[in-house]
Design a protein around this nucleic acid. Structure first.
Lengths: 338, 338
DNA sequence: ATATAAATTGGCAGCGCTGCCAAAACATCA
DNA sequence: TGATGTTTTGGCAGCGCTGCCAATTTATAT
C-alpha cells in the first residue's frame, strides 16, 4: 500500500449525486438531514455515499453556507500553557462539551505572551471560527480590535476580575488570594511569605497575590518574605524557592504558593529537611491538583473549578448565552499543611 | 459596543484590491509573498489591507489552492486523554513546533475509545487537514480505511511496537516494561507486584505490562501480585491500589506502576503508613513526571521522551520525512525508591 | 532607436459546497 | 376529470480565494 496513492480528486458531492442518480442539492439535503426529500432518495444517497467513501469537505461547506447559518463549526482556543495542569483541565472541559455539539477546537498556545496571543488570534480568525475562547481578560489593543471586528462570540476564561469583551467564565483570582490570606491569618500565622512565579507574565497569579496582600494589610500585617521565580512553575522550582526563602527569612511561619505544583515541591523540601509542616512552616497552595489530595498530609489549598469553567464556556456558546460574567467560585480545601 | 455588530460581509480580497487600486491576484500575491510584484504594489496592498483590517479567509484559500500546494494548513490531532499529563506534553511539543511552520492543530480527545477515535477521524478529515496525528497503532478497520483513502500524511505517536500506517514516532513500550523489570530484578527484588489501570483501554500500558512479565519469565520469576484499577489513573487511585495490593500480598517487595501519578500515590501511601521505601516495599513508576524529581526520595522511573515525540512528529511532517519509525528511546531514572 | 527578454499585472475559471428558485412529481379535493 | 395545494427535485449562482494565462509594462541588448 502506498501513501499519497490517491491520484486526483477525492470523492465530491457531484460523484455521489451521479452514483445515486439524484441532483447535488438532494445529496446535500440528505447528508445534512435538512430540507425535505423522499425516503427513496435518502436511501440511495446514503448508500452511494457509503459505497464511494464520501467525506464531506467542510471547508467548502463553511464557505458556501452563510456564516450565520452554521458558522464554520470551528472554535478557536488560546491558552497560555500546557505545562500548568490548569490549562489541560480547562481544555478537557471545553472540548468534551464542545464536540457533543459538533464543534471542533483549533488550539493555540501563547506561552503567556500577549504578542503571541495577538498572532494566534489573527491566525485563528482566518479560519472563520464561530467563536473564540481565550484565557484571561488582558489582551493587546490590536487583539481587542480584531476580536471586535470579527463579529463572533468571545469567551474569556478563568478570570472574572474585570470587564470582558463578551462572555466571561471563571472565578475571582483576587478573591482567591484574599481568602487564602484570611485562612492563614485565622489559623494564627503572622509571618507570612510568598513564593510565586513571574507575576508580570501570569496575570492571574498577580491578581491572587494582590488579593492576598490586601487581606494582610486589612489585618494590619504585611508580607514577611517573598521569593519570585522566573522559570515555569514546577515542583523543583517551588522546592528551591522555598528553601531560598527560608534561608533568608527563617522565621517565616507560613508560605503562600502561587500554584500547587510549587507548593508540592516546597512540601517535599520540608520533608527532605525534616521540617514539620505546619509546625516549622505552614504551606498553602492554589488550584487543588488531584495529587495533593493523596498526600499523607493533604495540601491546604484552594479548589478552583477548572473543568467546570471549560464546560460552562462550551455550554454558553452552544446555548447562545447573553454577554456577561459567569462566576463559578472556588472552595477552600482545608488540608493539613496550613 | 455591541457584539455581532458587523452587519454584512467581512472585508474580502476584492475590497483590498479596489482600495489599493490593483487586481485581486496582485493582492493575493503580495499577501502571500509569492510570485512577483513591484515594490509599489506591495506597499499599496499592505497599506490598504491594514487600513481595512483585512483578515484572509483560509477556508476559501485552502479550498482554492489545490491540496498539493499548501494543503489546508490544518493538522488534525487525536489524543486519548488530557488527564494523563503524558498527552499534554505530547501536544506541547507538537503544537510548539507546528505553529512555527504555520500550521494550526485541530484536536480531538478520544477517551481511549476506538469508536470515538473513529468518529473524530471522520470529523477531522472533513476539514481536509494536510496531516493527521494519532496516538498509538491500534485503530478500527474503518478508521484505517478512511486514513488510507484520505491520501494525507499520518503520524502515530508514542508506540513503536508494531507496524504503522505512515510515520511512527515514539518508543517501545514493551521495551520500557522489559527494562523496568530488569532493573527491579537486578536490584534484587523477587516478589514483584503490579499496579495498573485498565489494560484493555490503555494499550500502551498493556504493552509495557507484557514486556514486564516477559522479563520476569526470562528470569524464572512470575508476577507475585497485582491490582488493576478501572478508574482513570491518578495519585489517589494509585495509593488505594497499593494499599489493597499490600493487604492481599504483604510480602510483595517491589511494585511496578503503570504510571508515575499512581506510583506517587503509592509512595504517599507508604509515607502515611510509615513504611520504608524501598525497605518495606520498592516502588517503580513510568514516565518520569517532573514532580517526581523534586521528591525527597526521587521516584525510580523511566523517562519517556514525550516532548521530543511531539516535536519529532511536527518536524517529520514539516520536512516531509519518509514513512517509517522514529524510535526516540527512553531512559532509566535511578531515583531512590527502587 | 528598435528588437527581444524579463518582470509585473489583471481577468477569469473553478475549488466543493449550500441557498435560492422554479420545475416536476405527487396528493387532495371538488 | 381537472384544478389546486404540497412535497420533492435539480440547476445554477456564488461564498473568497488561488492558479493559470495572456496582456501589459519595464529592462536590456543591439
Amino acid at each position: 500500500m502506498t501513501l499519497h496513492q490517491v491520484p486526483g480528486r477525492l470523492v465530491t458531492i457531484a460523484d455521489v449525486a451521479r452514483e445515486a442518480q439524484v441532483g447535488e442539492s438532494t445529496v446535500s439535503r440528505v447528508l445534512r438531514g435538512q430540507g425535505s426529500y423522499s425516503k427513496r432518495a435518502g436511501e440511495r444517497v446514503l448508500e452511494a455515499a457509503a459505497r464511494l467513501g464520501y467525506v464531506p469537505n467542510r471547508l467548502a461547506g463553511s464557505l458556501a453556507g452563510n456564516a450565520d447559518s452554521v458558522g464554520s463549526q470551528l472554535v478557536g482556543v488560546v491558552i497560555p500553557s500546557l505545562t500548568n495542569i490548569v490549562f489541560p483541565d480547562l481544555l478537557r472541559g471545553l472540548t468534551g462539551d464542545l464536540d457533543t455539539t459538533g464543534f471542533q477546537s483549533v488550539i493555540g498556545v501563547s506561552d503567556y505572551d500577549p504578542a503571541r496571543e495577538e498572532t494566534l488570534v489573527e491566525s485563528l480568525l482566518s479560519w472563520r471560527p464561530s467563536a473564540l475562547v481565550l484565557t484571561g481578560l488582558e489582551h493587546t489593543a490590536l487583539t481587542v480590535t480584531r476580536l471586535r471586528a470579527a463579529g463572533i462570540r468571545i469567551v474569556e476564561m478563568i478570570d472574572t476580575d474585570g470587564p470582558g469583551l463578551d462572555i466571561v467564565v471563571g472565578f475571582s483570582n483576587r478573591a482567591v488570594g484574599h481568602a487564602s490570606a484570611r485562612h492563614l491569618i485565622e489559623r494564627g500565622y503572622r509571618r507570612i511569605g510568598y513564593v510565586g512565579h513571574d507575576l508580570s507574565q501570569d496575570l492571574r497569579a498577580a491578581k491572587r497575590f494582590a488579593g492576598f496582600e490586601a487581606a494582610l494589610r486589612e489585618a494590619g500585617l504585611s508580607l514577611h518574605s517573598q521569593e519570585l521565580v522566573f522559570d515555569r512553575s514546577s515542583a523543583a522550582v517551588g522546592r528551591a524557592a522555598l528553601e531560598a526563602l527560608m534561608a533568608r527569612a527563617p522565621d517565616t511561619d507560613a508560605v503562600y504558593f502561587s500554584n500547587d505544583d510549587m507548593a508540592l515541591g516546597g512540601y517535599f523540601g520540608c520533608l527532605g529537611r525534616g521540617w514539620a509542616v505546619p509546625g516549622r512552616v505552614a504551606l498553602f497552595g492554589c488550584h487543588a491538583l488531584d495529587i495533593t489530595a493523596a498526600m499523607p498530609q493533604p495540601l491546604s489549598t484552594m479548589r478552583t473549578p477548572r473543568l467546570e469553567i471549560g464546560r460552562a464556556a462550551a455550554r454558553s456558546l452552544a446555548d447562545g448565552a447573553p454577554a456577561g460574567t459567569i462566576d463559578l467560585g472556588f472552595e477552600l480545601c482545608q488540608g493539613a499543611t496550613a
